[in-house]
């Protein structure tokens, strides 16, 4: 069993701040969006620190732009490091993508071409980021709707190679694997099976919008069955991995998310009752 298994967590969202602090729900840990707390003070920071006193946290960023060909943004990284010093997260994550160029931000997670050139570029930058932050750093696979004609390999080979060469870890988003498998017509299980378990530190679960011919990663719905099924397979392959639910839009009451989290827990427990029996007692 992994030393880093935090259990079952939720994304901390503004709508739930007061509820979390007052009711102290049975959530093992929270993931916070780093950028939301890069403000000077006021309510967001008050709740962040108050909730941190009661729960472990990890920091999840959306704008590092590790794949961009712009220079790394030292000002951003400095703010990230400052926030990490304040809340002492178990780890920091961002996405295997680029988000902007020449100082302009798309505020989207834009996919990379899967080329050797891109691998070398990202690996060098991940190493710089890790040196600067001095904390465990995870890269997450994104949902994508395009692929580039010059790609030389599969997404999973690209992802694995970046992680292996740079020494960072993986945040595997189960929903994103599903979404991309539908959009690019690959088998999501092939993706899971190609990933070396030793790199996987965290899972994301989320919902999406299915338009039949393509699927968009909207994070505004409950987790649908195909994602639960893939999650079960991931539990079998990777064992106990810190798992959280990412809900970013159309945010339901905290209780609804707690129920969804219970479902994740029971799927994992079923799998681990065979593979990790001692573990199940502690869940």
């Amino acid at each position: 069993m992994s030393d880093h298994f935090l259990g079952f967590g939720l994304g901390l969202r503004t709508q739930h701040f007061a509820d979390v602090l007052e009711t102290r729900p049975n959530v093992d840990w929270f993931e916070v969006i780093s950028e939301n707390f890069m403000v000077a003070g006021g309510k967001p920071k008050y709740f962040l620190h108050a909730i941190r006193e009661h729960y472990p946290m990890v920091m999840h960023g959306v704008s590092m732009s590790i794949g961009s060909t712009d220079p790394l943004d030292i000002e951003y990284l400095t703010k990230l490091k400052k926030l990490a010093n304040e809340i002492q997260p178990q780890w920091i994550s961002d996405h295997l993508c680029w988000t902007g160029l020449e100082g302009i931000n798309s505020h989207d997670l834009l996919p990379m071409p899967y080329t050797e050139e891109a691998i070398q570029h990202i690996v060098e930058r991940v190493q710089q980021v890790q040196d600067f932050l001095g904390r465990p750093f995870l890269l997450e696979n994104v949902s994508s709707y395009i692929s580039y004609t010059e790609s030389e390999m599969s997404e999973w080979d690209f992802y694995s190679e970046v992680v292996k060469r740079s020494g960072c870890l993986m945040l595997l988003d189960i929903n994103n694997i599903y979404v991309s498998s539908r959009n690019h017509h690959f088998n999501a299980e092939d993706y899971l099976n190609s990933i070396d378990p030793k790199y996987v530190r965290q899972f994301h679960l989320a919902g999406h919008s299915d338009f039949t011919d393509y699927v968009i990663d909207t994070h505004d719905h409950d987790i649908p069955d195909p994602v639960w099924e893939l999650y079960q397979k991931a539990c079998r392959r990777f064992g106990p991995i810190s798992t959280m639910i990412e809900r970013d839009d159309n945010i339901p009451p905290l209780n609804d998310l707690l129920l969804e989290l219970e479902k994740a827990k029971s799927i994992a427990q079923d799998v681990f009752s065979n593979t990790h029996p001692q573990m199940v007692e502690t869940l």
């Binding site: 160029l101 020449e102 798309s106 071409p113 050139e117 692929s147 580039y148 004609t149 010059e150």
Partner: peptide, 26 residues
């Protein structure tokens, strides 16, 4: 580099300044 050229094309597209990126997308 190809990567930088491609990213420039993609940003131009997002900002509504041209779709040179299209032939490079499957």
């Amino acid at each position: 580099t190809t990567l930088r050229i491609r990213q420039k094309m993609m940003m131009r597209f997002l900002l509504g300044n041209g779709d040179e990126i299209a032939p490079h997308i499957k």
